[in-house]
Simulated scan of single mutants.
Amino acid sequence: MTNGNKELSLEQREELFNTLKARFEKNMNRHEGFEWDNVQARLEVNTEKLWSLNQMEATEGEPDVVGYDEKTGEYIFCDCSAESPKGRRSVCYDREALESRKKHKPENSAIDMATEMGIDLLTEEEYRELQKLESFDKKTSSWVQTPANIRKLGGAIFCDWRYDTVFVYHNGADSYYAARGFRGSLKV
């Protein structure tokens, strides 16, 4: 899929641009007032971010533009798949949780996967903002960044959307479920 320095081939870049542009144009409610040409221009000068966006796409996150950071001039991409991305489910929260399991370890952790992909787990606040755009995670749940005081005690938090409401829950950080993954964001 990629070479050693995490660069996409010209063909992969073109395919990614086409996918992102089609999604952008189909879902204007997520980014009213934004122009695709400006987003693409930003992507073309930040090619190191394309690999991360491609990883979001490859794990079925369906990344799309959900905001713009006025201070940095960066567009904010976020996973907009209806449910937690399929290619990122059945993971515990972080490496410490993964290593603490004696039996039935998951293959990976949310934090490790996000780091490998070059993206950030959503915070609870970012998750709530995403849900204002449309309803996500009606059948699944997503790990979110956990405050240090909760993580220190062995816990981690996750969110989902039920009854027209964002719910925030806790679990042991070492738990994992087929219906729980994580959503990420990337500034470009």
Score class of each variant (00 low, 15 high):
Q12W: 02
Q40M: 09
N46E: 03
Y163V: 10
T72H: 05
A156E: 02
Q145I: 14
K49F: 04
H104P: 07
S175E: 05
S142D: 06
A114K: 10
E126S: 13
T47E: 01
G155A: 07
P106L: 00
W161L: 14
F34L: 12
E14T: 10
E107L: 14
E125A: 10
L121G: 06
P147Y: 02
V144T: 07
G61K: 01
Y177D: 06
E116S: 12
G172L: 09
H170V: 11
E116H: 15
M113P: 15
M56N: 05
E134G: 09
Y177V: 02
F182C: 01
E125K: 09
R151L: 01
L20P: 10
A156T: 00
W161M: 15
S141V: 03
L43C: 07
L53P: 09
K138W: 03
K26P: 13
R88S: 03
G118W: 01
C78H: 08
Y68D: 02
L50A: 05
M28I: 06
G181K: 04
D164C: 13
D112Y: 10
G155P: 11
A82I: 08
Y169L: 07
V144Q: 14
R89C: 04
V168M: 06
E35Y: 03
L16K: 03
D79A: 04
K26R: 05
L53D: 05
V65S: 06
A41R: 13
G172Y: 15
L10W: 12
T59M: 10
N27T: 08
H31Y: 00
R101K: 07
F167I: 02
F182A: 00
N108T: 00
E83K: 13
E116A: 12
V168Y: 02
L16G: 04
I119F: 03
H104I: 03
R101M: 04
A114G: 13
T72W: 01
K71P: 05
A179G: 10
F182L: 02
L122R: 14
Y169P: 09
N29G: 13
E125G: 10
S81L: 02
L130P: 14
V168E: 04
T146A: 11
E126Q: 11
E83V: 06
E96M: 05
F24Y: 01
N149T: 14
R162C: 12
N149M: 05
D37K: 13
A41K: 12
Y68C: 06
G172T: 10
S100T: 04
K103Q: 09
A148E: 01
E44P: 03
R13W: 00
E44S: 08
S52Q: 09
Y177W: 03
